[in-house]
Amino acid sequence: MISTAVILSALELGCIYALVAMALFLSFRVLNIADMTTDGAFTLGCAVSATVAVAGHPLLALPAAMLAGACAGFITAFLQTKLNIPSILAGIITNTGLYTVNLAVMGFSSNVNLLRTPTLFTLVQPYLGSFFKLVPAAVIIVVMGIALVIFLNTRLGLSIRATGDNPDMVRASSINTGFTITVGLCLSNSLTALSGALLAQYQKTADINLGTGMVIIGLASLIIGETLLPKGKIWMKALGAILGSILYRFIIAIALRMDLPSECLKLISATIVALAIGLPAIKAYLKPATKGGKTGC
């Protein structure tokens, strides 16, 4: 029922989308901000990557996409920290504006074709045989994962973590929360854009709608990963994001094999996320409150 080709493609896509899960780990879990820029930043990464690749620089396309993503994150952070716009609204505003920007990047066309353009994957194809898609994606995700974990243990990383954990305390430690939020959102959106950049080159096309629902897919992957691995150190959580993303792709692959129409996937993802985030509340409703709860004084 499941061929090696299916497994391989689930692994490949899992690795590519794991960058979004890692980005959301940084914004949603570490900084405690639901970053709605994600959808637009993903498409921005696709658009920049495709356009730069068409211009003949498939490798340069990746850092260019990351830079573009960081700019998108910076705008959301600016709206939030300098103009005091609530974080979710700030993300939605940037996301809305990005739609036009993304079209502009693709030359006001809703898609860009890379069929005859060399990509990162076609460049390494002669050396890696049938793993030419998996190996580069896996290497990038491992490098980014390690870099993220190391970064979160540096002084700057610690202050970003504390910003999401207890902002009062962070200000009392002479750290500017506006600055830490900005750095965090720039980094997370550059990861998201890198994911989009890889996907565009992977499927040899960029489309204005590729990013739709990406924030929910990323959250679903992140939450699946969190339930798989024990809670603990930062590296465990980063690993969870990667594993969750791969598992999510396997679930999708199986669903498609079972002749589930692909239009249903977004509804399934949305349901997974709603249930997973709502689980503590659901448990509380089901459990009778009389048994030695933590209520009272």
Binding site: S159, R161, N166, M169
Partner: peptide, 23 residues
Amino acid sequence: PLKGTAPSMTIEENLALAYMRAS
């Protein structure tokens, strides 16, 4: 007492944050 420390970070990491004032 909850206001002065970051709960999900370790004692060591909390101290490192406080130490940043000097460094």
